[in-house]
Simulated scan of single mutants.
Amino acid sequence: MTLKIKDLENNLKITETNFTIMTQFFLLGFSDIPTFHWFLFGIFLVIYIIILLGNGIIILITRIDSSLQTPRYFSLSNFSVLEIYYVSIALPRMLMDLWTQEGAISFSACATQMCFFLMLGATECFLLALMAYDHYVAICNPLHYPLVMNHKVCVQLVGASWISGLPVEIGQTCQIFSLPFCGSSQINHFFCDIPPLLKLACGDIFVNEIVVYIFAVLFVTVPFMLILRSYSRITFTILKLPSNTGWTTAFSTCSSHLMVVVLFYGSATIAYLKPKFSQYEGMDKLLSLFYAILTPMFNPMIYSLQNKDVREKTMLHIYGNSPQ
């Protein structure tokens, strides 16, 4: 009997140790396909360079060209800055892991990565909603556009988009990393994100999952509903236009933004709001690649190809004369 009690005490100590000694995690990334890690390293390195160059060009053009220093392009410039920061949270780390084939990340580095990723993700949602509102005002109330979207208001709205998610996402990160982690320290992902981390937590995480859903609704669904509201009004206004020329102009104004919205919101919504019984982790990685890496890459391509002003100004500054 005494021996059994001692064994029980030893097991409790081991269990308690498992809760407290988690000092680092291991990002598995794409370790399940090791023969392709150099190929993936090359692909993601090219993608990172494209993201930096593409978004950097948009930032530069909108800053140095006086004709593009308008509320719309101020929002687009901030969006490009955000995309560079956003992708730089996960992609350089993933490139390093593909190069070294290690994947070890400290507890504090993992928490920091997730915190910044969540904050910038919330900022992206609000910036996309702001850009949709800008299109709504420009198309539905063009005479009032200079008054409604003046420089001061635009700066305030963009600033609010940047800081709105800071306190909430910092609190959510603290809540996630205050959970006890035991057993495996392997994160089956290429960066520290909420869903794979919750799978490593011990005990009852029901409250944490509810909080994740609440914040996902707050920072993903609410801005998305605002975007839908803006575009529903834009649609009604377009249908009232007397000529197809007006329809074409309005559609060209909104099409690039709509493409980015569909890419980002579609993948992010499925990743964070999908049912719990969906356990196919390969799909989680694929969805994360869309909203964390591919959307920032497509952003400059979409806006430069769809936006006549950005395309012409870019060609003008590159070649020194107007495109023919």
Rank of each mutant, 00 (worst) to 15 (best):
Ile270Pro: 06
Val137Cys: 09
Leu52Ser: 10
Phe41Ile: 00
Ile43Gln: 01
Ser80Lys: 01
Asn78Cys: 11
Arg311Trp: 09
Phe206Cys: 15
Tyr213Trp: 06
Ala129Lys: 10
Ala268Asn: 12
Thr245Leu: 08
Ile14Ser: 12
Ser178Asp: 08
Tyr73Phe: 10
Ser304Lys: 13
Tyr291Asn: 10
Asp193Pro: 00
Ser31Val: 02
Ile5Tyr: 01
Met297Trp: 03
Ser67Asn: 09
Ser108Trp: 08
Pro223Lys: 03
Pro300Cys: 07
Glu124Leu: 12
Gln113Asn: 13
Thr112Arg: 04
His37Lys: 03
Ser31Lys: 05
Asn307Lys: 00
Thr245Trp: 02
Thr237Ala: 15
Gly183Tyr: 08
Ser230Gly: 13
Ile51Asn: 02
Gly320Thr: 03
Phe30Thr: 10
Leu53Ser: 06
Thr269Met: 10
Ser252His: 08
Thr15Met: 13
Ile163Pro: 03
Asn78Trp: 12
Val153Tyr: 02
Gln24Glu: 15
Asn299Phe: 01
Lys274Val: 04
Arg233Asn: 10
Thr17Glu: 10
Ala216Arg: 07
Gln24Ser: 15
Ala132Gln: 06
Phe298Met: 07
Ile51Tyr: 00
Pro195Trp: 02
Leu218Asp: 08
Val260Cys: 09
Thr112Cys: 06
Pro323Asp: 12
Asn299Met: 00
Gln279Lys: 15
Ser243Ala: 05
His135Ala: 12
Lys199Ala: 15
Lys4Ala: 14
Pro196Ala: 05
Phe264Asp: 11
Gly121Val: 06
Asn188Pro: 00
Glu169Ser: 02
Phe264Glu: 10
Val310Tyr: 05
Trp247Ile: 11
Gln113Phe: 06
Leu68Pro: 07
Phe181Ser: 06
Ile234Glu: 03
Phe277Arg: 11
Leu258Phe: 12
His257Lys: 05
Thr237Glu: 14
Phe264Ile: 12
Arg72Trp: 05
His317Asp: 07
Ser288Leu: 02
Phe126Asp: 07
Ile89His: 01
Leu166Ser: 06
Cys182Val: 08
His37Arg: 08
Tyr265Pro: 05
Met149Lys: 13
Met301Ala: 10
Ile210Trp: 05
Ala268Lys: 13
Phe39Leu: 04
Ala268Asp: 04
Phe191Thr: 10
